[in-house]
Amino acid sequence: MAHNDALTTADEYQDLLLNTPEFSKFLLGLATISASQLGGDGAPVECTVTVERDGALSTFAYSSEEGRRLDETQYAFGTGPCLTALREQHTVLIEDLQLDQRWAPYTYAVAKLGVRSVLAVPIHTDPLSQAALNCYAHTVHAFGPDTVKLVEDQAASMSRILRLALRLHAPDVFPEDLRAALKSRAVVDAAVALVMLQARGSRDGALELLQAAAKSGNRRIQEIAQEIVARGSFSTGPGRGEI
């Protein structure tokens, strides 16, 4: 059955990536899926996913408002188990927060929020970015060896989809612009194909005709193309007739 579960999760991840236009919402989905899988046996677990790109740009997503505060606290201190897991790429387990001195100022702050144990697991991505899946629980020793293994497996299965998401949502391009360009290009190509067929003309000829129509009407190429596609033919607009 474990095999089946893994398959379902992979499908879930894929659907999530395909259906979420924004990177932050995608991460939120990942965190929510993890929390729902871990919190199954009664004790609620908060999950967060943290991503750092080029050492600077960071996005984090959380399965609840509490998770947000926990992650933000860590950012405020600039250190913590999750940031260590992310930057040093190894699993960090705090079985009892009150006995752990490694991240002292941070641990005092989250202990006040009722957190007793923390597990942070790196998610392998690409050389330019680092990510971690973090889990918080309200009881001590909440993460036994089996749970640690489960979370590590989950982080491993997230790796591929997260790498895809990072590529799709590269920070230095304009996601909306790219989507708009793809859509526009599809319409223009369809219009060009139609015009070529009807005029038995060349691609350049069709492009020039679109440009001339746009220019004479002071309109966008894309609008002209949309009309051609909607109408199924290029009707002679104002000012321009033959190809």
Binding site: V173, F174, D177, L178, A180, A181, L182, K183, S184, R185, V188, D189, V192, L207, L210, I221, Q222
Partner: peptide, 12 residues
Amino acid sequence: LLKLWTYYYGIG
């Protein structure tokens, strides 16, 4: 340049 190229690509 990338923005111009992307737009230019979008119109064919």
